[in-house]
Structure formats: C-alpha cells, structure tokens
Simulated scan of single mutants.
Amino acid sequence: MRNKDYEEYASKKYDELIESQEAFNSKFKLESYSNWFYDQESELLRVYNDDDDEIFFKYIPIGTYSLKSNTWLWSWENEHSIEKNKLKTLVVKQLGEKRDYEKLTKGLIDCDREECWDFVAISKSMINAIGVYCTNSKDLLTYKLLTKVFTDKDSSLIRMMKQKTVDCGNHGFRRPAFVCKHLNHKEKLGFEEAFDTHKGMDLDDEDSFAAWCDECEQVRLETDGWNEESEKFADIKLVCEECYFELKEFNKK
C-alpha cells in the first residue's frame, strides 16, 4: 500500500514538473545552448555557445545517475559533491522517513533512468527553484535545481569559471593543474609549488597550478632549472584543481 502511495505521489509531482519546466524552457530556451559547465564551490552553472552567448544560474545538486551501474545517488550521500547547499535536499529524505518512502531515504538506489525525474520532481516541489537541468559527463548524469539567474557577469566567480577546464572522472569539470608523476596518496614526498596557492583563488591567464615532489626539486636545482633533463625526470601530468589540492594536503611536510 505504501509503494502504491509513493507511485501516485511521484506521478503527481512529475506532472507538475513537466508543466513548470515547459514554462521555464520557453523563457530561457536552454536547448539553444550547446555547452555547459558547472563549478561546485560557487554552485554556479554556465550554459553557453561558442560566441559567448551565455546564461549563469545558481543551482542545488539533487543527485546523480550512473549509466553504467543504473543507480541513483542522492547528493546528500555523495562525498564527491562539495556544494554546501546540497544539504537542502535533506528535506526530501525527511519526507521519505515520515511517509515511509524508501526511495527517498536510501542514499544509493537501483532504478531506471526515467525514475530520476521523479526524484527531481519531488525535490523541486519541496525546494524553491525556477527550473531543472541535467548534465552528462562520462556516463554520469547530474541533476540540478536552478534557483535563480546569476546576473553579476563581472564577478570573480564567473571569471574563474570561464578559465580553461578539465573533465575529471572523480570531480567533474574543474580548472586544470599540473603535478609531477611521483606525487601520490600513499607516500609523503613533499610538495613544491610554482607559487603559493589556495583553493578557489583567481589565476592570471598565463598562470596554472603546478607542483612537484622534493626529489624533482633537487633535480631541478642540480640541472639549473626546468629543462629537458629535469622535465623528463618530473614527467608532468594533467590533473584537476580538486585533485591538486588533495595531493597538496597529503604530501606537504
């Protein structure tokens, strides 16, 4: 009986979502934009075309769906979701606990892709939002509630977002960073940087996060700086900004 009650509730909220989303799409015409990028720290989504026609939205992450495992993961359960406002989705979990709707209380759920929209619809009915958006990256769908249009296009948040990005399998789209091949999470090797850094900092166009281990620094000094020999020893690799600061936290002495 409870399951039937949930199905009826989810169906009603889905119908409401379809109606509101049609009005949202009619106003903002997001289907006309070919690119997207979101920044977890600032909780901003950018949808844009190559000619810099763009719109920015503040968003709340609702959950992700893996096309490989056919599972839904609520954002409040997702350790890779660093958005602070994801905790707003706990109201959905509280509703599930109150009404005994298991699919709203379990962090990880086996389900069909179509059912994700039920979860999004229920979330939107409980959290104030103007629309929804789904991104697809490496077989992972990420569902977001869009809460408002962000109009301050001169802000440092937007300048940071529009810098070159890398698609990280663990952290999504983030700014690129570069580290030597030796840095890892198993053995502390030291952490030498091109300049002092902190997460979320603004970078000049010519700057990038770059770091190497103590052994690389010794080779660099012995060979009079970065050159063919020292660069070959370091064998620099590309990572994302989030990976960079995880390595920094682990390796610094």
Rank of each mutant, 00 (worst) to 15 (best):
S20G: 05
L17F: 10
I158A: 04
N78Q: 07
E241Q: 10
M126D: 06
K27G: 06
A210F: 14
M161L: 08
L238D: 07
G63Q: 02
A177V: 05
L183A: 07
V149G: 03
D112H: 12
A10V: 06
L189A: 01
C213K: 05
L108I: 15
S230M: 08
T105A: 10
T105Y: 03
S125I: 05
E22K: 14
D235C: 11
F245T: 10
E114W: 14
W36A: 10
I82M: 10
E192R: 06
S34I: 15
N85Y: 02
D139T: 08
C180M: 11
F56V: 09
F119D: 01
Q21K: 07
L30F: 12
K199I: 13
R2A: 15
E246T: 14
V219N: 04
I158W: 04
F250Y: 15
S34R: 11
I127K: 00
D167F: 12
E7A: 03
S123F: 03
I130S: 02
L95F: 10
L90K: 01
F250E: 06
D207S: 13
N3C: 12
A121R: 00
I18Q: 08
T71F: 07
V239K: 01
E249W: 10
S11P: 01
K186R: 13
W117I: 11
E54N: 13
V179H: 02
L73A: 05
N35K: 13
E217N: 15
G172K: 02
T135E: 07
L146M: 03
K144F: 10
C180T: 09
E22V: 15
I122M: 03
L67W: 06
T223K: 11
Q94P: 05
L90E: 08
D52C: 13
W226F: 13
Y6A: 06
L87P: 00
Y133C: 06
L95Q: 04
K13N: 14
R113G: 05
N35S: 12
S208H: 14
G107D: 09
D202G: 05
L203K: 00
P176Y: 09
L145R: 01
G190E: 05
F37H: 15
I18T: 11
R113Y: 11
C134I: 14
I130Q: 02
K103Q: 12
I55A: 03
C111K: 01
L157C: 06
F28V: 10
R220P: 02
E97C: 09
Y244R: 04
E41R: 09
D39S: 08
E22P: 00
E77C: 13
Y48I: 14
A10G: 02
Y101G: 00
K232G: 13
G107V: 06
I130L: 07
